[in-house]
Design a protein around this nucleic acid. Structure first.
Lengths: 271, 271
DNA sequence: CGCTACGTTGATAGGGCTCAAGTAGCGTGG
DNA sequence: CCACGCTACTTGAGCCCTATCAACGTAGCG
C-alpha cells in the first residue's frame, strides 16, 4: 500500500506515526510522477474534511496496531471515528459463525455508522496495520453540527459515500467472474491510494489471500490463481521478495481486463 | 409496460393503494393470528417515524405506478424520499451495461441517500407496484433538523440501518450457496412484511425470477430450482394459480434450512 | 533449524451457468 | 370465444468455473 521509500526495506509503512508530516501525504519514491488532477483534488478534499473535524469537535486520537479493534460488535455506540492514517477492515460475524469482510477503509473514511441505528455496533472495525483514528463523541458531533452546517454536511457525505461504495462492491461481486473481481479489487485499491496522494504503481498488500478472497466472495486459491494470471498477462508484477508487493504498471489496464472478462470475445493477451 | 390497473380480479396485494387505510397496515386475511410482540413494536416505530417526518417538514406526496422512477442515476440530488406505501427497488447500472439490484425498500424506508455525497444520484429507485413516497427537500430537512433533533436522529438512523442491511446482504451473497440465498431472501422478505404489520404466511412476489436472481447474484433458473426445492421440502407452498403467490407456513423453518445448507451433515428432509 | 503461517499450483469434483425445450398465464385482435 | 403472441416460469442436459483437497515452496521467527 504505500508510498514507501523503496529503499527502506525495514519499515515500509507510510503510516509510521500519527501526527507526522505525512498527514499531507506527499507522493514519495524514486519516480515521483505527477499526481493526476482528480486525485490531487480528492487528496485536498480529504485533508480539508479532516481539518474540519479536528477544529470543530474535540477528537481523541487513538493509535491502533495490527489487529487492534476500533470497536467490536455488541459494544455500545458512543463514538464515530475518522481514520487519519492506516487501513482498516470492517468485519461482520453471523450468529452461526460465518465471517465476512464488508468494507475496507482508508484515511479520511469514517467508522462506526452501523452503531447509530440501534445504539450498538454490529460489526468489528480492525486495523490492518498501525494506524490512527480520531474518536468523536456522537453527541458532541451533533451539537457541533448544529452550529456548523459544514460539519453535518461532512457526516452526511461520508455516510452517503459509504452507501454508494458498498453498492459498487455488491455489483462487482454479483456480476463479475472471479479473476475480474481480483482485477477490480486491485483497481479500487490503487484508486483509493491515489486519491490519498500515495503512489499506486508499487503497493504492498497488507491483506492475506484469504482476506482478499473473503472480501471478494471467492476462496484464497482462486485469488492466488487470479493474481498469477494477472502477472502472466503482465498487468501486475510481483516484487522479488515475497508476493505481497505488487507493481501495477498501468491501472487502466485492469479496467480493460475486467471488460475482457465480461465479453466472451477471446483476446490474445488473455491466456 | 405499465401499472396495469391492478388486476381488478384477484389482487391480494396488501399494497393496494396509497393513502388508503392500510397506512395503519392491519393484518389481513382469513387467519388473523396475532402479531408478534417485536413486529408490533417495529410497526409502531415505523408509523411514528413517518409521523415525525410529516409534521416536521413540508412533504410532497408522489404516487408511483409499476416501474415508475422516484429518481434516476444522473439526476441532480435535491430531495430525499420516505416510502409510505409500496415496494421499491434500487438499481445501479455500470458504465458497461451491467445492471444490479442493490436494495429493496419498504414502507418507512428512505430513498435517495446515494445522492448526498456528490449532489447527484448514482442509481435508480423504481416502484415495484403502485406506491407512494413523500419527497422531502434536503435543504428543508436539514433546516428543520436543526430545530428538532429527533428529525435528524431519524435521518441518521435510517442511513445507519441501510448500511447495516446492505452488509447483511453482502454476507448472504458471499457465504451462502444458491438455495440458501433464496431461502434467506424469503425469510428477509417475510420479516420486512411482518415488521410492517402485514401477514407473512401468504405473500405475493412482485419480483420476477430474473429480478430475484439478479438481487441474489444467481441466474433465474437457479432461483426457480431453489423455489421448487423449497416447495418439495414443504417449506413453502405455491398458490393454485400462478407461481407468484407463496405461502410460508413457518418462517423459522427457512432459517433452519439455511443452516442445513451450511453444514454438510445430510438431513433426511433435504432431498 | 524446525515451526508456523502464508502462498502457489495441480487434480478432481460439484454447484451453478448455459442452452434448450416445453408449459402456463395473460393481453390482444380476429 | 378462441387463436395468437408474448412474457414468465419450470425442468432437463451438459459443461464450465470455482471450490475442495492435497502437495509443495517460501518467509518469518523463536
Amino acid at each position: 500500500m504505500l508510498a514507501n521509500a523503496p529503499a527502506l526495506a525495514a519499515n515500509p509503512s507510510p503510516f509510521v506515526m500519527p501526527g507526522a508530516a505525512n498527514a499531507i501525504a506527499p507522493r514519495l519514491g524514486a519516480t515521483p510522477e505527477p499526481m493526476r488532477e482528480d486525485d490531487a483534488l480528492h487528496s485536498r478534499l480529504i485533508a480539508a474534511r479532516l481539518a474540519l473535524v479536528a477544529e470543530s469537535v474535540e477528537v481523541q486520537r487513538r493509535v491502533l496496531r495490527l489487529d487492534g479493534r476500533v470497536y467490536q460488535a455488541g459494544m455500545r455506540f458512543t463514538h464515530l471515528f475518522v481514520i487519519n492514517t492506516g487501513v482498516f477492515k470492517v468485519v461482520t460475524l453471523s450468529p452461526d459463525g460465518r465471517e465476512q469482510i464488508v468494507g475496507l477503509k482508508f484515511r479520511g473514511d469514517w467508522l462506526g455508522f452501523d452503531g447509530i441505528a440501534d445504539g450498538q455496533h454490529d460489526c468489528d472495525a480492525i486495523a490492518m496495520d498501525t494506524g490512527e483514528v480520531w474518536a468523536i463523541p456522537y453527541a458532541a458531533l451533533l451539537q457541533a453540527g448544529a452550529a456548523r452546517p459544514a460539519l453535518l454536511g461532512a457526516l452526511h457525505e461520508a455516510m452517503s459515500r459509504e452507501i454508494s461504495r458498498d453498492r459498487n462492491s455488491l455489483m462487482s461481486i454479483c456480476t463479475l467472474p472471479a479473476d475480474a473481481r481480483v482485477a477490480d479489487f486491485l483497481r479500487n485499491w490503487a484508486h483509493a491510494l491515489a486519491r490519498r496522494g500515495l503512489r499506486t504503481d508499487q503497493i504492498t498488500m497488507r491483506m492475506t489471500r484469504a482476506e482478499i478472497g473473503n472480501y471478494l466472495g471467492v476462496t484464497l486459491e482462486t485469488v492466488s490463481r487470479g493474481l498469477s494470471r494477472l502477472a502472466r498477462c503482465g498487468l501486475i508484477e510481483f516484487a522479488d521478495k515475497g508476493r505481497r508487493e505488487i507493481r501495477i504498471p498501468h491501472v487502466e489496464a485492469l479496467s480493460a481486463f475486467v471488460q475482457e472478462c465480461l465479453s466472451p470475445v477471446a483476446s490474445p493477451v488473455l491466456q
